[in-house]
Write a protein that binds this DNA or RNA. Structure first.
Length: 495
RNA sequence: GGCGCCAUGGCCAAGUGGUAAGGCAGAGGACUGCAAAUCCUUUAUCCCCGGUUCGAAUCCGGGUGGCGCCUCCA
């Protein structure tokens, strides 16, 4: 059954209890991508945050209707396509396909509806006409403008006042510099559709108002998107929808923070500091990316650096290693019996495991605090590792770590992390990290065979030299009772 | 100029009234042929000033600094 949760609402600038319009249901609209290039780590944050959020709500019993749009008609798409002598819609749709390739590889769910501007022209025109009819929009030279001054509530989301804005563009035909286009008359080389106001194409903001209305109705529960969209995009959406529909728009506004560079500035194409998801995924498992995002609060800025993914991967490795140790433990006594016999480390892992669900739900129900949830999971991993150091843990510890293993399953089901088998995880890491280091598994194995021969001859000098060479190349060698194991170093610098 | 967010140990970071989670890095120790991994120990009174309170990192006021938005932006 759906349980209550609390959410920061940009409208009130405070955390509020979530109250659905319809019991047990959540209508969620998230602003998607303008598709003219591959997505970068900053875009991926928004996608991962809302994917994780949707998964969690569903895990908690909510019936979520998740809508995320594609902007496939836009100035930048047109400019980029024209540069390459291609049709703008063809160009955009190729990048929608690439978006799906990337987000599928990231392990993200598809939205329930993924409307495109080009498929919603009729809905956009209908809303535009409603705005004209209600006196909130005017026609000028084939353009239709939203009249900001006609909306007394304009600015309520962002706190902006129309007269205090830095002088915007003074397009001929606009009554107020802050008025924005609902419909733009056609220009040469641009896609266009017929309309009551002449051929043209939609303005940027109207699409989201029209698409959310189409799939979720006039009033719906949660509207999401990047923090950089609050003004003007979301402000304008509120104005259009509430004026055009004469009904409230989204009840909760949920904004994710930006990825920032060393300078504190956000990752963005104009700054030339973007890192593509495609690159990241060729060298790191998708879960490492998702853990990187989950480490922080969704609405805070998150620092990006070359070390971000190596760090996240080594953290992920710690979690998988701990889980593997727990899985290897046997025994069939009662947990209480084992905990009594094996001491406080056993008590601790039992207790943390049993408490985990409550702590996990508390963290995520309180404005989706994944950072807290991840910290608790790491604490549990440490408790497992500590307990695993006991001689009798492997033979008798199973009952004591069972709740911890349940905790890992819970995380996997609720937010899709720790969702692989240990073998799958290590296989993926090996493949991707070897590729990043330009090494082959065969080469590593051959070196290890040589080292084994040296070790058998107790030629420690040669043995260590071989290991040293491997380490220099980023391969860690671990001597165990059953022979040497190897792994690609997780925490190495960028590639 | 306007609007908004933020300021916690070397770095990242959770914490929203009762004396500071977690990660990375560093130092010491256990383990190891030596290592790696792992574990243990170790590093903070929370930007500054004032106020409220028995008590504040947490609330209020002022200051300083950073960032986002006001043009496209996840």
């Amino acid at each position: 059954m759906a349980t209550p949760f609390r959410l920061y609402n940009t409208l009130s600038r405070s955390i509020e209890p979530f109250e659905p319009i319809t019991d047990g249901k959540v209508g969620l609209y998230v602003c998607g991508m303008t598709v003219y290039d591959d997505i970068h780590m900053g875009h991926a944050r928004a996608m991962v945050v809302f994917d994780t959020f949707v998964r969690y709500l569903r895990h908690r019993g909510w019936d979520v209707h998740f809508v995320r749009n594609f902007t496939d008609v836009d100035d930048k798409i047109i400019a980029r396509a024209n540069e390459h002598g291609e049709d703008p819609l063809v160009w955009a749709h190729r990048y929608i396909d690439r978006f799906h390739e990337d987000t599928d590889a990231l392990g993200l769910l598809r939205a329930d509806d993924e409307p495109r501007v080009s498929g919603c022209i009729h809905d956009i025109q209908k809303l535009t006409q409603d705005l004209i009819d209600r006196g909130h929009a005017y026609i000028s030279e084939g353009n239709v403008w939203f009249a900001v001054k006609s909306d007394a509530e304009y600015g309520k989301l962002s706190g902006q006042k129309v007269d205090e804005l830095r002088s915007a563009d003074t397009d001929a035909g606009k009554q107020n510099a802050a008025d924005f286009a609902l419909w733009k008359s056609v220009k040469p080389g641009e896609p266009s559709w017929d309309s009551p106001w002449g051929p043209g194409r939609p303005g940027w903001h109207i699409e989201c108002s029209a698409m959310s209305k189409k799939h979720l109705g006039n009033t719906f529960d949660i509207h999401g998107g990047g923090l950089d969209l609050v003004f003007p995009h979301h402000e304008n959406e509120v104005a259009q929808s509430e004026c055009g529909n004469a009904a409230p728009y989204a009840r909760y506004w949920m904004h994710n923070g930006m990825l920032t560079m060393d300078s504190g500035q956000k990752m963005g194409k104009s700054l030339g500091n973007v890192f593509n998801v495609r690159n990241a995924l060729s060298h790191f498992p998708a879960e490492a990316l998702r853990l990187y995002y989950a480490q922080g609060l969704y609405r805070s800025s998150l620092p990006w650096s070359d070390q971000a993914l190596p760090d996240a991967l080594s953290m992920l490795g710690r979690l998988y290693d701990a889980r593997e140790k727990a899985e290897a433990m046997g025994g069939s006594e009662s947990a209480e019996q084992v905990a009594r016999d094996l001491g406080e480390d056993a008590q601790l892992v039992l207790e943390l495991g049993r408490n985990f669900p409550e702590r996990f739900y508390d963290a995520l129900d309180n404005d989706f605090n994944t950072a807290k949830a991840m910290a608790d999971l790491l604490s549990l991993a440490r408790a497992i590792n500590r307990f695993a150091g006991h001689k009798k843990a492997r033979k008798r510890g199973g009952p004591v770590v069972a709740p911890a293993l349940d905790a890992f399953r819970l995380v996997s089901e609720a937010i899709n992390l720790m969702a692989m088998s240990t073998a799958e995880f290590h296989a993926e890491v090996k493949t991707k990290r070897l590729k990043a280091l330009s090494l082959s598994a065969e080469w590593v194995e051959a070196r290890l065979d040589e080292r084994k021969a040296a070790r058998d001859a107790k030629d420690w000098q040669l043995s260590d030299a071989i290991r040293g060479e491997l380490e220099q190349r980023g391969i860690m060698v671990m001597d165990t009772p059953t022979g040497a194991q190897w792994r690609v170093r997780l925490g190495t610098a960028s590639d």
